[in-house]
């Protein structure tokens, strides 16, 4: 059998070795640019013609991987893999570790798939984007003009769409150090290997705020802040959280794909959100 190559038309390839080189590559790249992270989505998309870049800017050699603490923040390099999240000990953001453990596709995907790739791709069904909202993350974007930061809550503009310009790469994601915050993460899927239908992340900050973000249900991830004492066993509280989540979803529009209708996702979103709050207290271990 003849093994297929990637595509019929080729592209320019740039593999900068530092941030200056990256800014230069982004500024001088020919035509439509694709930034390459771990490649787990982009390379198959190129093979199948769904992505047709004129230039690929590969981040593999930029040294943008790993988690570090700086000035009360945790900085997650865009090239940090799910494996890095699982093996960095102690985990500066236990929620991300928990999230990475549930990523499917085998160790091959967890070894290469990156946080930056998932965040930038803005697939409504991915785990990372909504979790970043719950963690109050900021996205650090590099272009030939310099660096700018965008809160995760303003980053997503639609399915597979963000405010990132073509001449920008996501280089880092910064989060307020979660310290002793507790979290719950729940995803609802139809089978073990399927994309999640709805994900919910609850983060209870030590200061008292409770933030719940929902992914998969809306065209973009949504988050709600809850100030009332949370009691997942109380039907009134349950009705309240459902209402809050549904009203957020109505303002961004629901997400429909071949796995599930938006109406269905909207209907279960509040329940999954409530389960993530229950998981905060350890009374719901369901994924």
């Amino acid at each position: 059998m003849k093994t297929p190559s990637a595509t019929r038309t080729t592209f320019d390839y740039r593999a900068p070795e530092d941030l200056d080189g990256l800014a230069d590559a982004l500024g001088t790249a020919r035509g439509a640019v694709s930034v390459l992270g771990g490649g787990t989505m982009l390379v198959p998309d190129i093979s199948h013609g769904t992505a047709q870049p004129d230039t690929v800017v590969d981040l593999a050699r930029t040294g943008l991987s790993g988690l570090r603490r700086a000035d009360g923040e945790v900085v997650v390099g865009a090239m940090t893999t799910y494996r890095d999240l699982l093996t960095t000990a102690p985990a500066p953001v236990p929620l991300l570790r928990r999230l990475a453990a549930g990523v499917t596709g085998g160790p091959q995907i967890r070894n290469r798939g990156t946080v930056g790739g998932s965040a930038a791709f803005a697939n409504p069904s991915s785990d990372v984007p909504a979790a970043l909202l719950a963690l109050r993350a900021r996205m650090r974007l590099l272009s030939p003009d310099g660096v700018r930061e965008v809160p995760a809550s303003d980053f997503y503009t639609g399915p597979f769409a963000t405010v990132r310009r073509d001449d920008e790469a996501l280089i880092e994601i910064t989060l307020p150090d979660p310290g002793a915050a507790s979290f719950g993460y729940v995803k609802f899927k139809l089978s073990v290997g399927s994309w999640p239908i709805v994900t919910a992340t609850a983060v209870a900050e030590s200061g008292g705020g409770l933030r719940v973000a929902v992914g998969g249900a809306g065209r973009v991830p949504v988050a709600v802040m809850l100030t009332e004492p949370a009691d997942p066993a109380d039907p009134e509280w349950l009705a309240h959280i459902r209402e809050r989540v549904e009203s957020e979803l109505d303002s961004v529009g629901t997400w429909t794909d071949e796995l599930a209708e938006g109406t269905y996702r909207r209907r279960i979103a509040g329940t999954i959100a409530a389960r993530s709050v229950a998981a905060l207290r350890g009374d719901d271990e369901r994924r």
Partner: peptide
């Protein structure tokens, strides 16, 4: 040292 799906890696990346 780490498993990867070689259909999802460009050969140039593996240089």
């Amino acid at each position: 040292g780490r498993t990867a799906k070689s259909c999802s890696v460009l050969a140039v990346t593996a240089d």
